[in-house]
Design a protein around this nucleic acid. Structure first.
Lengths: 116, 116
DNA sequence: AATATTGTTCGTAATTTTGCGAACAATAAA
DNA sequence: TTTATTGTTCGCAAAATTACGAACAATATT
């Protein structure tokens, strides 16, 4: 690396999405939201083994990553997937994994060998 | 949540993989490895705007997440994708996103409305 | 043996993450 | 008006993350 070398915008965005997915509570929240029409805070909290303050924090992170949105419906708060950004996350991750790993040589008697 | 409620094994694993993807340097490393047959530490370092000690640390995390492997080829170290675990990550993420977001009601004049 | 090359590990520092309980705000209900 | 319900925010603490330079280890070269 010389100087000023930065990351691409796509890679930054992909990392941001992946980071948001990088906690089992947040995976569980998203999984729940993907399958539910109704999605109040309390319903989400009930799915998780953590305090409501912590749930609120995870929801905030998902919101800041753009993956969900919430709106107040007094006295409750309704959450759901942000479909536009969700589609972007899916696309970025899809492209990333579409880049298949390089084919390995057939005569690898040694299973542990790498990139031979 | 009552007591003892934990996360599923799959969700834990998915979060572990996602967390490993949650930094632009690691995304860049993986992207590079996916397209290269040759992959010494030095080649990876050249792609990144960070010190070698930091690169080494990111590689260690990717190794611990199971996404890559390395082997010594004195005096160099060759890295590559761990294809078995890579396939598992792809599968888990694929299943996760295959769970499509719930359809939104048609009469949503308000674009910002959520889960109505 | 002395030197160079290649990466890892160590020690350190700054920041972020994760988690909780308590306090708070806002509305609804009594 | 008082009380209950629903979530967020605050303050704090412990742990993990990110980053760097310096030191180190291992092999290769001179």
């Amino acid at each position: 690396m010389i100087k000023g070398k930065k990351y691409t915008v796509d890679n930054e965005q992909l990392a941001r999405f992946a980071k948001a997915l990088g906690h089992p509570a947040r995976i569980t929240i998203l999984e729940f939201l993907l399958g539910q029409e109704s999605c109040f805070f309390g319903n989400i909290h009930d799915e998780l083994p953590i305090a409501k303050a912590t749930v609120s924090q995870h929801l905030k992170e998902l919101k800041e990553a753009g993956l969900i949105q919430g709106e107040i419906e007094p006295p409750k708060v309704r959450y759901c997937i942000n479909k536009e950004n969700w589609a972007q996350a899916e696309r970025l991750l899809g492209n990333f994994f579409a880049n298949q790993p390089h084919h390995q040589s057939e005569n690898s008697a040694d299973k542990k060998s790498c990139c031979k």
